[in-house]
């Protein structure tokens, strides 16, 4: 592959990284903390390519052709085009119900007991799914019982039940772990994958080893919402 093509590929790939960084789409793929590294990587890629192009132009065409002669970059370099095309043309969506249904239940593995503080006071407490399932799995004193809680997630159905689910990632979407809560009471009849805010109360002691620590939740009201900017919890 010619040097010019390599440089264009680098600019495209760096540009793709910068595009998802500045448009916020990176949150579909990686965790929030990676943003500065992504921007730096994009800038460096584009910078290295531009530097090489400027050098080649200054040295004149002949030198560039000569370089090409003994640069034996393999065909694999072409593969760098794949993520570029994926980002610019397809822009894959955030992970959803497909992962929840195929992955192992991981509710009980969230953090552990000693990280739990007191619940905030208030009529309706907005809680992350992580905190909610952690409390139902680990907290034996029942701090959640009787409290009205608001959860945000997407709907998914399996084994005759309706669940509100959310994925948690620690690095990128490849390590996504599902968090699930089974809905009872006024179960919404919205389609799968619809993002919702559900308000209601936990069914005390409903999370146990037999149901992989998936708690039940009595729904009082449901609001459909748009997919949050940060689709994953971390």
């Amino acid at each position: 592959m010619r040097r010019e093509t390599q440089n264009i590929l680098l600019i495209l790939l760096g540009g793709a990284l910068l595009k998802i960084s500045f448009s916020g789409l990176y949150l579909r793929y990686v965790q929030k903390g990676l943003l500065p590294l992504l921007i730096a990587a994009g800038v460096i890629m584009v910078g290295l390519a531009v530097f090489a192009i400027v050098q080649d132009v200054r040295r004149g065409k002949a030198a560039a052709e000569d370089d090409h002669g003994h640069s034996h970059s393999s065909r694999s370099t072409w593969l760098m085009l794949l993520p570029v095309l994926a980002v610019f043309l397809i822009s894959p969506p955030a992970l959803g119900g497909d992962v929840v249904s195929s992955a192992a239940d991981t509710n009980q593995t969230q953090r552990s007991r000693n990280l739990l503080g007191d619940l905030p006071s208030g009529e309706v407490i907005p809680l992350s799914m992580t905190e909610f399932v952690t409390r139902t799995a680990w907290d034996e004193s029942g701090t959640l019982d009787g409290r009205r809680v608001k959860l945000t997630g997407f709907l998914t159905r399996a084994d005759g039940g309706t669940f509100v689910a959310r994925l948690a990632i620690s690095c990128c979407a490849a390590d996504a772990r599902p968090l699930k809560v089974r809905l009872t009471g006024d179960v919404p009849s919205l389609p799968d994958e619809q993002w919702v805010e559900v308000t209601g109360k936990v069914v005390p002691k409903s999370a146990n080893e037999k149901n992989s620590w998936v708690p039940s939740f009595t729904v009082e009201s449901t609001t459909s919402v748009a997919q949050p900017v940060e689709p994953y919890e971390s």
Binding site: L13, L34, A41, I90, A174
Partner: peptide, 30 residues
């Protein structure tokens, strides 16, 4: 046509994971 072709849940998941792995690894490769 490409977008239509990939509009299967499994393929959508695969393409997201693929982009995620590339995006996540690039800064470290750099």
């Amino acid at each position: 046509r490409l977008v239509d072709l990939l509009d299967v849940p499994k393929l959508r998941t695969a393409s997201t994971v693929f982009v995620a792995i590339c995006v996540q690894a690039m800064p470290f490769l750099v």
